[in-house]
Design a protein around this nucleic acid. Structure first.
Length: 538
RNA sequence: UGGGCUAUGGCCAAGUGGUUAAGGCAUCGGACUUUGACUCCGACAUCGAUGGUUCGAAUCCAUCUAGCCCAGCCA
């Protein structure tokens, strides 16, 4: 694939050319407090691709500096998702493994008189900070002696003070126009069990302090993050410099990938999961990576999507339709085609005598290497209910009607002559005749059928539950939950196909479908990954 | 009335002073078709605004306008 240029690529190429670095080292630094979603794919793939394309490497680092929100459940899920995405990391790190080093670096700051222990309450700190247009005031504790600060910071670490009673702050500039520079808190006291370090620590570093140290320790060259951290960059650089880190990483910000009308917020998804509105973090209607995987989206389609979008420094909402189109495009080239009826109605071929016969059908019209499979044909079939109308309504109708002849794909022409309905007038059975001379592959061309439809032979077909999805949120502007977002139907697929787990198939004329983990041998369950495009207008 | 950032067609997005402003999505025509899919043709922008610099500007300068982010002991 031809890589698109982007401003970060330009920076890296420049850094390589000037020998600032021999190769790039990047990282993806999630906090393990939720599931990864499509938006994160941009960050993961960007970091991975940039590093590997230029001969460097990529790390996965869990940014686990806040024990109360983090959980090993998420640590495991994230690893699985990133592996699935196809971005193997060279090293797996935890910010929490650097707690000793971070403490030492913070102490260095204290000793240099560049950090102090503050005893203001959280509310007081907020008040002293000022607001967007008024400068902050210095804390009365700001000018303690280095000696006192050393003792107090040690005391914090040793658990001598209650939670929230003291913090360590960097001494920078209470009047700065950049709020982040108004003596940011860098350590807080928090007695909480950490998923990795247990109860070893009762003080935990804040992101602004921890992140640059982590990057520097790992020798990250280009530290990519999203736009909202732009005004944290001076602080990032301040810590790298004053903590005297030997490696100097460069923070570069890019625009987050946001998808319109999709739920990505951790709290929001958690709530939906808890309330049973969705079937879990991997519900196929969610654009979590787990949800997309379960739905049957191939990771390569996600790569292609991210690549098409590029890497902007602006911020906007991308239409989910663009994603589905890329998925379709990928699947169109890579998915095997089979017949699956998702809303069946029975057809009886009244002039068909004898046993089931077997025809041959290719898996993909343009890909001989995909091979072919045997397709059964016999007296009883299923076709799609909406492929039949009693009367052909107009000349555009390219399907079955009474007295009208259509081609059954890869089989014969059939012509409908009668129907049987139930008490409510709903069609139960369509009676047709077939013409043995029209068998597919014989080159028969004496008549043109009124279109081509697909079918499945009734006695050999396998029943299948199909789950059809629409957007989870209504797109009418209300953003309310769409109650019709999951629709379950019962249909049939042809009986002679071997399937691999998670392989997406095209059910001819219906869209792409993949086996759901709920499937069992005798009870197949498919998710519709995405429908086919249709220009059909009645 | 602080600081940071962004503005290119309905959406995403290339472009970093020099022919008719890439490409994708969407939309609208049309061709083809044993998937109303795919594929293929065709249509679809004076680059937020206004001034300036220049032989020449989406690209440089100025001013203005709009939008986003920042006042967690979250990340």
């Amino acid at each position: 694939m031809m890589e698109k240029s982007n401003f970060i690529r330009t920076i890296i190429e420049e850094d390589l050319k000037t020998k600032k670095h021999d190769y790039p080292v990047t990282r993806f630094p999630p906090e393990p407090n939720g599931f990864l979603h499509l938006g994160h794919a941009r960050a993961i793939l960007t970091n991975y691709n940039l590093a590997t394309e230029y001969g460097g490497y990529f790390n996965l680092r869990f940014d686990d500096t806040n024990p109360v929100t983090e959980d090993t459940l998420f640590v495991e899920a994230m690893q699985k998702d990133i592996e699935w995405l196809g971005c193997p990391w060279k090293n797996l790190y935890y910010a929490s493994n650097y707690f000793d080093e971070m403490y030492k670096r913070a102490m260095l700051l204290v000793k240099k008189g560049m950090a102090y222990v503050d005893e203001l309450t959280a509310d007081e700190i907020k008040t002293y900070r000022g607001d967007l247009t008024t400068p902050g005031k210095e804390s009365p504790y700001r000018h303690r002696s280095v000696k006192e600060n050393v003792r107090l910071f040690e005391g914090m670490k040793n658990g001598e003070y209650p939670d929230g009673s003291r913090v360590l702050r960097a001494k920078i500039d209470m009047a700065s126009g950049n709020m982040n520079m108004r003596d940011p808190v860098i350590y807080r006291i928090q007695r909480a069990e950490h998923h990795n370090t247990g109860n070893d620590w009762c003080i935990y570093p804040m992101y602004d302090f921890a992140h640059p140290i982590e990057d520097a320790i790992e020798g990250i060259t280009h530290s990519l993050c999203s736009l909202e951290f732009e005004d944290h960059r001076p602080l990032y650089d301040w810590f790298v410099k004053h903590c005297e880190m030997p490696n100097v990483p460069r923070q570069i910000e890019f625009g987050k990938l946001m998808i319109a009308h999709q739920i990505t917020g951790k709290r929001h998804i958690r709530k939906l999961v808890e309330e049973g509105v969705v079937d879990g973090w991997d519900d196929p209607r969610l654009i979590t990576l787990s949800g997309l995987r379960r739905r049957g989206v191939p990771p390569q389609a996600i790569h292609a999507f991210i690549e098409t979008l590029g890497l902007p420094k602006s911020q906007g909402y991308t239409d989910i339709a663009m994603f589905y189109e890329v998925v379709r495009d990928y699947l169109s080239q890579h998915a095997r085609r089979i017949h699956g009826i998702i809303d069946p109605v029975k057809v009886v071929i009244t002039n068909y005598e004898g046993d089931i016969e077997t025809l041959e059908a290719p898996f993909h019209r343009d890909r001989e290497d995909f091979g072919s499979r045997p397709v059964a044909f016999g007296r009883e079939l299923y076709i799609e209910r909406d492929d039949f109308l009693m009367e052909k309504p107009n000349k555009k109708w390219k399907r079955l009607s009474l007295g009208i002849e259509v081609r059954l794909m890869h089989a014969y022409f059939i012509k409908a002559h009668d129907v049987e309905t139930d008490d409510e007038g709903r069609i139960q059975t369509i009676y047709c005749t077939y013409d043995n001379a029209t068998r597919s592959g014989t080159g028969f061309n004496e008549r043109k059928p009124n279109g081509t439809i697909h079918f499945v032979e009734a006695t050999t077909a396998k029943p299948a539950e199909v789950r059809l999805y629409e957007n989870l949120l209504k797109e009418d502007g209300s953003n309310a939950i769409n109650d019709a977002s999951k629709k379950i139907q019962h249909g049939f697929i042809e009986g002679n196909v071997d399937m691999h787990e998670q392989e997406a198939f095209q059910f001819t004329r219906n869209g792409y479908f993949a086996l759901d983990p709920d499937s069992r041998h005798d009870a197949l369950v498919f998710n519709r990954v995405v429908a086919l495009k249709s220009s059909f207008k009645k």
